[in-house]
Design a binder for these strands. Sequence first.
RNA 1: GUUACUGCUUAUGC
Length: 244
Amino acid sequence: AFIAKKLMNMYSRCGNTPKAMEIFTCLHPKDTFAWNIILACHCRNNSLDEAYELFQQIPAPDLISWTTLLSAYAHCGHPDAAKSVFDRMPLRNEVSWNTMLAAYANNDRLEDAKRVFDSMPGRNLVSWNTLLDGYAQNGHISCMTALFHGMPQHDLISWTCTLSSLAQTGRMEEAVLVYESMPERDMITFNALLDGYAKYGHLVQAKSLFDSLPETNLISMTVILVGFAQSGRMRQAKEIFDRM
RNA sequence: GUUACUGCUUAUGC
């Protein structure tokens, strides 16, 4: 049963709902843990309606079942449906509050997000990052900057959200300042800055950043390739292409 | 017991 649940989760993450369902069907007894795995599987890979149907069949849904459903509505761009799930939850914790916050923040409902943020019983770094990214994604750069400076702590995600937002909107001077202040970086950080350079025509800077990277991946290659190709530097584009 | 929350970093397709 141990292994069965592990397997279900693996299939779920690979998007193979039929295989996950096959195991679930054979599984006895089906505890809430197992139900939650198959629910999360449908939330990730199938329609909301199917997920909701499944949720209704869970004999004893727990906090995780409720939060999984909430998260599905949040990710599918239905903040109001998410709110109604949230209101019907028999209990809530930090994660469910953060999920509700994300439902608003990721769907450009920043006033509502801020209201949730201010009224939640506790705020952790995920809460701060969620609101920060809401501002970042929706182009509220000054709110983002203010929040960034008001946060109690920053982690790699806080820094990268901010960098990415500046780079996406072509504020390359500020993006570089953030980049240079970062205590740590990863591939997402590199690629976010690289993409800003490439997108806004700074191909020389893009190439020199690219050459200095400790490692590259398929995304870095694609970013620089597209940058060269779209600016008509076909010889350099071909050079990258041949290396892929 | 990686069962639920924050990075949508590229392109293509739709």
